[in-house]
């Protein structure tokens, strides 16, 4: 099943399948290790369009709501 980061459930993990953004967006995500194929776990979301907290390669990252919408994850 594919979800974007916002609709993914807290505490679940998966593999990044695609980034729905331009080159700049992919570059920005890529710098932090968010690339297609990378393992990712959602720690928590924040209400009222708040940021999503994920764990990628042993590091927690806060990602704004709009950007999180564009990160598509394959959840097993």
């Amino acid at each position: 099943m594919k979800f974007d980061l916002v609709s993914m459930e807290d505490g679940t993990g998966g593999i990044v399948s695609s980034l729905d953004g331009g080159e700049f967006f992919s570059e920005k995500m890529g710098n932090m290790g968010i690339v297609p194929g990378a393992a990712i776990k959602k720690i928590t979301g924040h209400f009222m369009r708040g940021p999503v907290i994920v764990k990628v390669k042993d590091t927690e990252i806060a990602i704004g709501y709009g950007m999180s919408k564009k990160i598509i994850v394959e959840v097993q």
Binding site: I53, T59, A62, I63, G64, G66
Partner: peptide, 10 residues
Amino acid sequence: SPEIFVEIPP
């Protein structure tokens, strides 16, 4: 005004 995108330190 871009959104937040930051590493959270341990």
